[in-house]
Design a protein around this nucleic acid. Sequence first.
DNA 1: ACCTGAACACCGTTCAAGT
DNA 2: ACCTGAACACCGTTCAAGT
Lengths: 243, 243
Amino acid sequence: MAQPTEAARRVPLNKDRVLEAAVAFADDAGIESLSMRNLAQGLGVVPMALYKHVANKEELLDGMVDVIVTEIEPAVATTDWRTAVRQRVLSARQALLRHPWASRVIETRTSPTPLVLAYLDSMIGLFRAGGFSIDLTHHVMHALGSRMWGFTQEVFDAAQTSESVDPRVQAAMIDQMGGRYPHIAELAMGASHEGWSVVGPGCDDQYEFEFALDLLLDGFERLHHQGWTSTRPLAPSVPERRV
Amino acid sequence: MAQPTEAARRVPLNKDRVLEAAVAFADDAGIESLSMRNLAQGLGVVPMALYKHVANKEELLDGMVDVIVTEIEPAVATTDWRTAVRQRVLSARQALLRHPWASRVIETRTSPTPLVLAYLDSMIGLFRAGGFSIDLTHHVMHALGSRMWGFTQEVFDAAQTSESVDPRVQAAMIDQMGGRYPHIAELAMGASHEGWSVVGPGCDDQYEFEFALDLLLDGFERLHHQGWTSTRPLAPSVPERRV
DNA sequence: ACCTGAACACCGTTCAAGT
DNA sequence: ACCTGAACACCGTTCAAGT
């Protein structure tokens, strides 16, 4: 019988290697082409070999998110909740910028892993350590939403296609759009000259992110200072369905 | 030759009927089981028949979003930008609550349809009519993000499973979680008694949405009143990649 | 010219056969 | 007991054959 191939002998598969390979694959080829079959091929194993290390594709994706969460720097010890939250969120953002697929995968997770729970727990802890009431902390965590992970849902921003567009072509597009969508055109004209596309790419993402984050933190600080408490309505007026 | 079947003769397929059927299918069976093949079967036609009315599945999904956008009530004519924006967003939210799959589909769209552009344009118009500068309007639209569509990315909220959990079982779960995730447990205990699950479902979604929306609108108002203008940094310190 | 069945190139996952 | 090739039940979409 032939010996196992060099590659197979040298690097026996385990869950960590599978996850690492999946992250690298998604970084390189994009999340849309990550399939169990493609991943297995990249590792030089038969597809079914992966199922010894992850129960199914969902567990693979959960594990990939865990890898990213591990890259987020731990919170710094400080009494200033605002700086702590800000640094943590911006660190999360840096991790997500390294893995453009991660935000889309995070959105599809239905139940948190222990690592994700630990991240949430420590984030809540920052507000509590800053003196926030349980009540306010609760609402503030909801208001942060996905911004807690360093991303926002920039709907329809067409970022992918904005890099290599001739400025004169863009100007023409904006011009043509002016008739039907005057306000969008106005915004597009008024923005930075680095180049805009349909709804606003070309502007500085990091600036936009921090603008919104600071706006929220301002609001949190104000409510905290004035000792805000929720006066919850008697009953919800809409179904409790989450969208 | 046999005549065409009653159904086929009575209701000839067109794009609107296809989109309407797709929306109904997703409402009933969930977006994950909406396939070209299933949709065709539901309409009593062969799968390829759909391709005469939509170029591909992406165009089908674009069209489905358009159907939802049409359900959003037009903005009311008023000089009060804040009320106008608030009503519009909450109307969008009502539309999305009727179609739980819509937010997930909106997130995956890469380029806006004319109808979506019109919605964006009118939303921008509300701020401009309220006297907001182009500069501020631009940043404010980014800060609104997906909240403009009436949804937020509630990451890991496990809403699906929270409806039928025995309160005593939940209490036990929270108790057990207290050791590893004390802050999460604390939040879960402190929340409403309507029933909580892991990270916070069971609380009033509509309340949380309006809390965050009003916090943002407060911030917008404040910046507007103080005549805020952006002092843009010389150059972005991070890659312009969007996440 | 129009319509559509069969086929292509994929999926995730099951399962039984082989060692 | 362990491993894996083949198969199953799907996808979206192409294409050529039939009318």
